[in-house]
Design a protein around this nucleic acid. Structure first.
Lengths: 182, 182
DNA sequence: CATGATTAGAACTATACAGTACTAAAAAGG
DNA sequence: CCTTTTTAGTACTGTATAGTTCTAATCATG
Protein backbone atom coordinates (compact mmCIF):
# COMPACT_ATOMS: atom_id res chain seq x y z
CA UNK A 1 0.00 0.00 0.00
CA UNK A 2 2.73 2.40 0.96
CA UNK A 3 4.49 1.48 -2.22
CA UNK A 4 1.45 2.39 -4.30
CA UNK A 5 0.92 5.64 -2.44
CA UNK A 6 4.59 6.47 -2.88
CA UNK A 7 4.35 5.96 -6.61
CA UNK A 8 1.16 7.98 -6.97
CA UNK A 9 2.42 10.85 -4.84
CA UNK A 10 5.53 11.03 -6.97
CA UNK A 11 3.95 10.60 -10.40
CA UNK A 12 0.74 12.52 -9.96
CA UNK A 13 1.61 14.77 -7.07
CA UNK A 14 0.44 14.76 -3.49
CA UNK A 15 -2.57 17.03 -3.80
CA UNK A 16 -3.60 15.49 -7.09
CA UNK A 17 -3.69 12.01 -5.63
CA UNK A 18 -6.93 11.35 -3.79
CA UNK A 19 -7.29 8.78 -1.09
CA UNK A 20 -9.94 7.12 -3.25
CA UNK A 21 -7.35 6.76 -5.93
CA UNK A 22 -4.92 5.13 -3.56
CA UNK A 23 -7.74 2.80 -2.58
CA UNK A 24 -8.58 1.97 -6.18
CA UNK A 25 -5.04 1.49 -7.47
CA UNK A 26 -3.82 -0.45 -4.47
CA UNK A 27 -6.95 -2.57 -4.20
CA UNK A 28 -6.86 -2.06 -0.47
CA UNK A 29 -9.97 -0.88 1.28
CA UNK A 30 -10.28 2.62 2.56
CA UNK A 31 -11.13 1.37 6.03
CA UNK A 32 -7.87 -0.44 6.02
CA UNK A 33 -5.82 2.52 4.97
CA UNK A 34 -7.39 4.67 7.65
CA UNK A 35 -6.85 1.83 10.08
CA UNK A 36 -3.11 2.15 9.57
CA UNK A 37 -2.85 5.87 8.92
CA UNK A 38 -4.84 8.44 10.77
CA UNK A 39 -5.03 10.73 7.77
CA UNK A 40 -3.42 11.61 4.49
CA UNK A 41 -0.58 13.44 6.20
CA UNK A 42 0.34 10.33 8.16
CA UNK A 43 0.26 8.32 4.97
CA UNK A 44 2.67 10.80 3.41
CA UNK A 45 4.96 10.53 6.40
CA UNK A 46 4.74 6.77 6.14
CA UNK A 47 5.72 6.99 2.51
CA UNK A 48 8.68 9.21 3.27
CA UNK A 49 9.94 7.04 6.11
CA UNK A 50 9.56 3.96 3.97
CA UNK A 51 11.60 5.53 1.19
CA UNK A 52 14.24 6.70 3.64
CA UNK A 53 14.66 3.28 5.20
CA UNK A 54 14.93 1.66 1.78
CA UNK A 55 17.53 4.19 0.78
CA UNK A 56 19.54 3.91 3.94
CA UNK A 57 20.10 0.21 3.46
CA UNK A 58 21.34 0.63 -0.07
CA UNK A 59 23.42 3.69 0.68
CA UNK A 60 25.05 1.87 3.52
CA UNK A 61 26.10 -1.00 1.27
CA UNK A 62 27.23 1.53 -1.27
CA UNK A 63 29.52 3.44 1.05
CA UNK A 64 31.19 0.23 2.19
CA UNK A 65 31.61 -1.06 -1.33
CA UNK A 66 34.90 -1.13 -3.23
CA UNK A 67 33.86 1.10 -6.10
CA UNK A 68 35.57 4.33 -7.02
CA UNK A 69 34.08 7.43 -5.51
CA UNK A 70 32.69 8.44 -8.88
CA UNK A 71 30.86 5.16 -9.21
CA UNK A 72 29.58 5.59 -5.69
CA UNK A 73 28.20 9.00 -6.47
CA UNK A 74 26.59 7.81 -9.65
CA UNK A 75 25.00 4.94 -7.84
CA UNK A 76 23.78 7.26 -5.14
CA UNK A 77 22.00 9.41 -7.68
CA UNK A 78 20.37 6.38 -9.19
CA UNK A 79 19.18 5.34 -5.77
CA UNK A 80 17.76 8.70 -4.80
CA UNK A 81 16.08 9.33 -8.10
CA UNK A 82 14.64 5.99 -9.05
CA UNK A 83 14.71 4.00 -5.90
CA UNK A 84 16.62 1.08 -7.33
CA UNK A 85 13.99 -1.10 -8.85
CA UNK A 86 11.93 0.80 -11.28
CA UNK A 87 10.45 0.49 -14.69
CA UNK A 88 8.83 3.91 -14.42
CA UNK A 89 11.21 6.61 -15.44
CA UNK A 90 8.89 9.31 -14.18
CA UNK A 91 10.56 10.79 -11.28
CA UNK A 92 12.77 13.28 -9.80
CA UNK A 93 13.56 13.13 -6.14
CA UNK A 94 10.52 12.02 -4.12
CA UNK A 95 11.66 13.97 -1.10
CA UNK A 96 11.95 17.27 -2.89
CA UNK A 97 8.65 16.67 -4.56
CA UNK A 98 6.80 15.90 -1.37
CA UNK A 99 8.59 18.65 0.46
CA UNK A 100 7.44 21.34 -1.91
CA UNK A 101 3.92 20.05 -1.96
CA UNK A 102 3.21 19.22 1.62
CA UNK A 103 5.79 20.63 4.00
CA UNK A 104 3.96 23.96 4.30
CA UNK A 105 1.02 22.32 5.98
CA UNK A 106 2.94 19.71 7.87
CA UNK A 107 5.85 20.56 10.12
CA UNK A 108 6.49 16.85 10.60
CA UNK A 109 6.99 16.28 6.90
CA UNK A 110 9.30 19.25 6.90
CA UNK A 111 11.35 17.83 9.73
CA UNK A 112 11.63 14.31 8.40
CA UNK A 113 12.84 15.47 5.02
CA UNK A 114 15.14 18.07 6.49
CA UNK A 115 16.80 15.45 8.64
CA UNK A 116 17.18 13.12 5.72
CA UNK A 117 19.13 15.70 3.76
CA UNK A 118 21.22 16.67 6.75
CA UNK A 119 22.20 13.05 7.16
CA UNK A 120 23.36 12.77 3.60
CA UNK A 121 26.14 15.29 4.14
CA UNK A 122 28.36 12.98 6.22
CA UNK A 123 27.58 10.14 3.85
CA UNK A 124 28.91 12.07 0.89
CA UNK A 125 31.81 13.25 3.02
CA UNK A 126 32.73 9.64 3.57
CA UNK A 127 32.56 8.92 -0.13
CA UNK A 128 34.83 11.89 -0.77
CA UNK A 129 37.26 10.71 1.88
CA UNK A 130 37.48 7.39 0.11
CA UNK A 131 38.22 9.22 -3.12
CA UNK A 132 40.96 11.17 -1.42
CA UNK A 133 42.41 8.07 0.21
CA UNK A 134 42.58 6.38 -3.17
CA UNK A 135 44.21 9.43 -4.76
CA UNK A 136 41.31 9.80 -7.19
CA UNK A 137 40.80 13.25 -5.85
CA UNK A 138 43.97 15.29 -6.04
CA UNK A 139 42.68 18.78 -5.35
CA UNK A 140 42.80 20.01 -1.79
CA UNK A 141 39.18 20.44 -0.86
CA UNK A 142 36.99 21.36 2.04
CA UNK A 143 35.28 18.02 2.38
CA UNK A 144 32.17 19.23 4.09
CA UNK A 145 31.53 22.07 1.70
CA UNK A 146 32.25 19.86 -1.25
CA UNK A 147 29.79 17.33 0.07
CA UNK A 148 27.14 20.02 0.22
CA UNK A 149 28.06 21.07 -3.26
CA UNK A 150 27.63 17.55 -4.54
CA UNK A 151 24.27 17.07 -2.91
CA UNK A 152 23.10 20.39 -4.29
CA UNK A 153 24.24 19.42 -7.72
CA UNK A 154 22.63 16.00 -7.57
CA UNK A 155 19.30 17.34 -6.51
CA UNK A 156 19.38 20.23 -8.90
CA UNK A 157 20.42 18.11 -11.84
CA UNK A 158 17.75 15.58 -10.98
CA UNK A 159 15.12 18.28 -11.17
CA UNK A 160 16.47 19.83 -14.32
CA UNK A 161 16.75 16.48 -16.05
CA UNK A 162 13.09 16.01 -15.44
CA UNK A 163 11.99 19.54 -16.28
CA UNK A 164 14.01 19.96 -19.42
CA UNK A 165 13.52 16.33 -20.41
CA UNK A 166 17.26 16.21 -20.99
CA UNK A 167 18.56 12.90 -19.72
CA UNK A 168 22.11 14.15 -20.09
CA UNK A 169 21.64 16.93 -17.58
CA UNK A 170 22.51 14.67 -14.72
CA UNK A 171 25.42 12.88 -16.35
CA UNK A 172 26.87 16.07 -17.77
CA UNK A 173 26.69 17.89 -14.47
CA UNK A 174 28.06 15.12 -12.34
CA UNK A 175 30.79 14.21 -14.78
CA UNK A 176 31.87 17.83 -15.11
CA UNK A 177 31.93 18.25 -11.38
CA UNK A 178 33.97 15.15 -10.66
CA UNK A 179 36.35 16.10 -13.47
CA UNK A 180 37.03 19.31 -11.59
CA UNK A 181 38.00 17.34 -8.53
CA UNK A 182 40.67 15.25 -10.25
CA UNK B 1 -2.78 41.09 -8.28
CA UNK B 2 -0.30 38.88 -10.06
CA UNK B 3 2.26 39.95 -7.51
CA UNK B 4 0.07 38.81 -4.65
CA UNK B 5 -0.77 35.53 -6.33
CA UNK B 6 2.90 34.98 -7.02
CA UNK B 7 3.75 35.48 -3.38
CA UNK B 8 0.98 33.24 -2.12
CA UNK B 9 1.73 30.45 -4.57
CA UNK B 10 5.34 30.53 -3.46
CA UNK B 11 4.83 30.88 0.27
CA UNK B 12 1.78 28.71 0.78
CA UNK B 13 1.91 26.51 -2.26
CA UNK B 14 -0.28 26.39 -5.32
CA UNK B 15 -2.89 23.92 -4.14
CA UNK B 16 -2.98 25.40 -0.68
CA UNK B 17 -3.77 28.85 -2.01
CA UNK B 18 -7.44 29.24 -2.78
CA UNK B 19 -8.77 31.79 -5.21
CA UNK B 20 -10.77 33.23 -2.33
CA UNK B 21 -7.53 33.81 -0.53
CA UNK B 22 -6.03 35.61 -3.49
CA UNK B 23 -9.18 37.72 -3.52
CA UNK B 24 -8.94 38.47 0.16
CA UNK B 25 -5.24 39.23 0.35
CA UNK B 26 -5.11 41.26 -2.83
CA UNK B 27 -8.29 43.12 -2.10
CA UNK B 28 -9.31 42.62 -5.71
CA UNK B 29 -12.71 41.21 -6.46
CA UNK B 30 -13.15 37.69 -7.68
CA UNK B 31 -15.06 38.85 -10.72
CA UNK B 32 -12.08 40.93 -11.63
CA UNK B 33 -9.61 38.11 -11.31
CA UNK B 34 -11.74 35.86 -13.46
CA UNK B 35 -12.16 38.74 -15.88
CA UNK B 36 -8.43 38.68 -16.50
CA UNK B 37 -7.73 34.98 -16.05
CA UNK B 38 -9.99 32.25 -17.28
CA UNK B 39 -9.12 29.97 -14.37
CA UNK B 40 -6.55 29.21 -11.74
CA UNK B 41 -4.24 27.59 -14.23
CA UNK B 42 -4.17 30.75 -16.34
CA UNK B 43 -3.43 32.75 -13.24
CA UNK B 44 -0.49 30.48 -12.50
CA UNK B 45 0.76 30.88 -16.04
CA UNK B 46 0.37 34.62 -15.67
CA UNK B 47 2.41 34.50 -12.51
CA UNK B 48 5.15 32.50 -14.15
CA UNK B 49 5.35 34.73 -17.20
CA UNK B 50 5.41 37.79 -15.01
CA UNK B 51 8.29 36.40 -12.98
CA UNK B 52 10.16 35.41 -16.12
CA UNK B 53 9.84 38.83 -17.69
CA UNK B 54 11.01 40.49 -14.48
CA UNK B 55 13.97 38.16 -14.34
CA UNK B 56 14.91 38.55 -17.96
CA UNK B 57 15.32 42.29 -17.62
CA UNK B 58 17.58 41.98 -14.61
CA UNK B 59 19.56 39.08 -15.99
CA UNK B 60 20.11 40.97 -19.18
CA UNK B 61 21.61 43.92 -17.32
CA UNK B 62 23.63 41.52 -15.26
CA UNK B 63 25.24 39.75 -18.18
CA UNK B 64 26.23 43.05 -19.74
CA UNK B 65 27.61 44.42 -16.50
CA UNK B 66 31.28 44.73 -15.66
CA UNK B 67 31.33 42.49 -12.63
CA UNK B 68 33.47 39.41 -12.31
CA UNK B 69 31.82 36.18 -13.33
CA UNK B 70 31.58 35.10 -9.70
CA UNK B 71 29.72 38.24 -8.82
CA UNK B 72 27.47 37.69 -11.78
CA UNK B 73 26.64 34.19 -10.68
CA UNK B 74 25.98 35.30 -7.14
CA UNK B 75 23.71 38.03 -8.36
CA UNK B 76 21.90 35.60 -10.59
CA UNK B 77 21.13 33.34 -7.68
CA UNK B 78 19.82 36.26 -5.72
CA UNK B 79 17.58 37.18 -8.61
CA UNK B 80 16.17 33.73 -9.16
CA UNK B 81 15.62 33.01 -5.51
CA UNK B 82 14.31 36.25 -4.12
CA UNK B 83 13.26 38.22 -7.12
CA UNK B 84 15.30 41.29 -6.30
CA UNK B 85 13.06 43.32 -4.06
CA UNK B 86 11.99 41.27 -1.16
CA UNK B 87 11.57 41.50 2.52
CA UNK B 88 10.16 37.99 2.71
CA UNK B 89 12.94 35.48 2.91
CA UNK B 90 10.55 32.58 2.40
CA UNK B 91 11.37 31.20 -0.87
CA UNK B 92 13.25 28.85 -2.97
CA UNK B 93 12.88 29.02 -6.68
CA UNK B 94 9.32 29.88 -7.68
CA UNK B 95 9.63 27.99 -10.93
CA UNK B 96 10.69 24.74 -9.36
CA UNK B 97 8.00 25.12 -6.76
CA UNK B 98 5.22 25.71 -9.26
CA UNK B 99 6.58 23.07 -11.57
CA UNK B 100 6.39 20.34 -9.00
CA UNK B 101 2.97 21.37 -7.88
CA UNK B 102 1.15 22.12 -11.07
CA UNK B 103 3.00 20.87 -14.14
CA UNK B 104 1.42 17.44 -13.92
CA UNK B 105 -2.01 18.82 -14.64
CA UNK B 106 -0.94 21.57 -16.97
CA UNK B 107 1.23 20.92 -20.01
CA UNK B 108 1.43 24.66 -20.61
CA UNK B 109 2.96 25.28 -17.21
CA UNK B 110 5.37 22.48 -17.92
CA UNK B 111 6.38 24.03 -21.22
CA UNK B 112 6.80 27.57 -20.00
CA UNK B 113 9.03 26.53 -17.14
CA UNK B 114 10.97 24.08 -19.26
CA UNK B 115 11.72 26.80 -21.78
CA UNK B 116 12.80 29.16 -19.08
CA UNK B 117 15.42 26.76 -17.81
CA UNK B 118 16.58 25.91 -21.30
CA UNK B 119 17.13 29.59 -21.94
CA UNK B 120 19.28 29.97 -18.87
CA UNK B 121 21.95 27.67 -20.25
CA UNK B 122 23.26 30.10 -22.88
CA UNK B 123 23.03 32.91 -20.34
CA UNK B 124 25.33 31.10 -17.94
CA UNK B 125 27.52 30.11 -20.86
CA UNK B 126 27.97 33.77 -21.62
CA UNK B 127 28.88 34.52 -18.04
CA UNK B 128 31.43 31.73 -18.13
CA UNK B 129 32.87 33.03 -21.38
CA UNK B 130 33.38 36.40 -19.73
CA UNK B 131 35.17 34.66 -16.86
CA UNK B 132 37.41 32.90 -19.34
CA UNK B 133 38.08 36.07 -21.31
CA UNK B 134 39.14 37.81 -18.13
CA UNK B 135 41.37 34.90 -17.12
CA UNK B 136 39.39 34.37 -13.95
CA UNK B 137 38.72 30.84 -15.10
CA UNK B 138 41.94 29.04 -15.89
CA UNK B 139 40.78 25.47 -16.20
CA UNK B 140 39.91 24.21 -19.65
CA UNK B 141 36.21 23.52 -19.45
CA UNK B 142 33.33 22.40 -21.58
CA UNK B 143 31.36 25.61 -21.35
CA UNK B 144 27.96 24.15 -22.08
CA UNK B 145 28.29 21.30 -19.62
CA UNK B 146 29.70 23.60 -17.00
CA UNK B 147 26.77 25.93 -17.49
CA UNK B 148 24.39 23.05 -16.88
CA UNK B 149 26.40 22.10 -13.84
CA UNK B 150 26.13 25.61 -12.45
CA UNK B 151 22.41 25.82 -13.00
CA UNK B 152 21.94 22.44 -11.37
CA UNK B 153 23.99 23.53 -8.43
CA UNK B 154 22.16 26.81 -8.05
CA UNK B 155 18.76 25.22 -8.09
CA UNK B 156 19.78 22.37 -5.86
CA UNK B 157 21.47 24.61 -3.34
CA UNK B 158 18.51 26.92 -3.33
CA UNK B 159 16.25 24.04 -2.40
CA UNK B 160 18.59 22.63 0.19
CA UNK B 161 19.14 26.02 1.79
CA UNK B 162 15.44 26.20 2.30
CA UNK B 163 14.89 22.63 3.39
CA UNK B 164 17.79 22.40 5.79
CA UNK B 165 17.35 26.00 6.91
CA UNK B 166 21.08 26.38 6.38
CA UNK B 167 21.70 29.75 4.81
CA UNK B 168 25.28 28.76 4.09
CA UNK B 169 24.27 25.93 1.80
CA UNK B 170 24.08 28.22 -1.17
CA UNK B 171 27.21 30.23 -0.46
CA UNK B 172 29.24 27.17 0.42
CA UNK B 173 28.22 25.30 -2.70
CA UNK B 174 28.68 28.14 -5.10
CA UNK B 175 31.94 29.26 -3.58
CA UNK B 176 33.34 25.74 -3.63
CA UNK B 177 32.31 25.29 -7.21
CA UNK B 178 33.81 28.52 -8.48
CA UNK B 179 36.99 27.79 -6.52
CA UNK B 180 37.30 24.60 -8.54
CA UNK B 181 37.17 26.60 -11.74
CA UNK B 182 40.05 28.89 -10.87
C1' DC C 1 -11.93 -22.27 19.91
C1' DA C 2 -11.82 -17.84 21.63
C1' DT C 3 -10.14 -13.30 21.52
C1' DG C 4 -8.07 -9.44 19.48
C1' DA C 5 -6.17 -7.62 15.31
C1' DT C 6 -6.70 -6.78 10.55
C1' DT C 7 -9.42 -6.42 6.28
C1' DA C 8 -13.53 -5.24 3.34
C1' DG C 9 -17.82 -2.73 1.91
C1' DA C 10 -20.70 0.63 1.34
C1' DA C 11 -23.14 4.37 2.32
C1' DC C 12 -22.59 8.77 4.22
C1' DT C 13 -21.05 13.64 6.02
C1' DA C 14 -18.99 17.80 5.77
C1' DT C 15 -16.54 21.11 3.63
C1' DA C 16 -13.46 23.48 0.87
C1' DC C 17 -13.02 25.40 -3.23
C1' DA C 18 -13.07 26.42 -8.40
C1' DG C 19 -15.94 28.51 -11.12
C1' DT C 20 -20.59 30.99 -12.49
C1' DA C 21 -24.42 34.37 -12.84
C1' DC C 22 -26.13 38.61 -12.60
C1' DT C 23 -26.34 43.33 -11.37
C1' DA C 24 -24.36 47.55 -11.17
C1' DA C 25 -20.98 51.01 -10.24
C1' DA C 26 -16.87 53.36 -11.77
C1' DA C 27 -13.21 54.52 -15.13
C1' DA C 28 -11.39 55.37 -19.59
C1' DG C 29 -11.39 57.35 -23.67
C1' DG C 30 -12.82 58.93 -28.18
C1' DC D 1 -21.56 62.36 -23.60
C1' DC D 2 -21.82 57.96 -25.00
C1' DT D 3 -19.58 53.53 -25.35
C1' DT D 4 -16.43 50.16 -23.87
C1' DT D 5 -13.62 48.40 -20.54
C1' DT D 6 -12.63 47.37 -16.06
C1' DT D 7 -14.02 46.82 -11.30
C1' DA D 8 -17.00 45.30 -7.26
C1' DG D 9 -20.53 42.62 -4.74
C1' DT D 10 -22.98 38.94 -3.63
C1' DA D 11 -25.06 34.97 -3.79
C1' DC D 12 -24.95 30.61 -5.76
C1' DT D 13 -23.70 25.79 -7.98
C1' DG D 14 -21.44 21.71 -8.43
C1' DT D 15 -18.03 18.74 -7.38
C1' DA D 16 -14.07 16.62 -5.57
C1' DT D 17 -12.43 14.61 -1.72
C1' DA D 18 -10.82 13.87 3.16
C1' DG D 19 -12.56 11.61 6.62
C1' DT D 20 -16.46 8.86 9.28
C1' DT D 21 -19.58 5.24 10.66
C1' DC D 22 -21.09 0.85 11.14
C1' DT D 23 -21.38 -3.89 10.07
C1' DA D 24 -19.29 -8.00 9.21
C1' DA D 25 -15.98 -11.09 7.45
C1' DT D 26 -11.34 -13.08 7.89
C1' DC D 27 -7.01 -13.94 10.09
C1' DA D 28 -3.68 -14.78 13.55
C1' DT D 29 -2.42 -16.82 17.69
C1' DG D 30 -2.15 -18.03 22.47
Amino acid sequence: MIEIAARLFLEKGYHLTSMDEVVHVSGISKSNIYYHFKNKEELAIGVIKWRISLLEQHIDELVRSKKSYKEKLNKMVALISNQECLDHDKGGCPFISLYLQAAQQSPRIHTVIKNFFLEQVPVVEEILQSGIAQKQITKAIDVRKTAKLIISTLEGALLLSEITADQHYMDDSLQTLTALLD
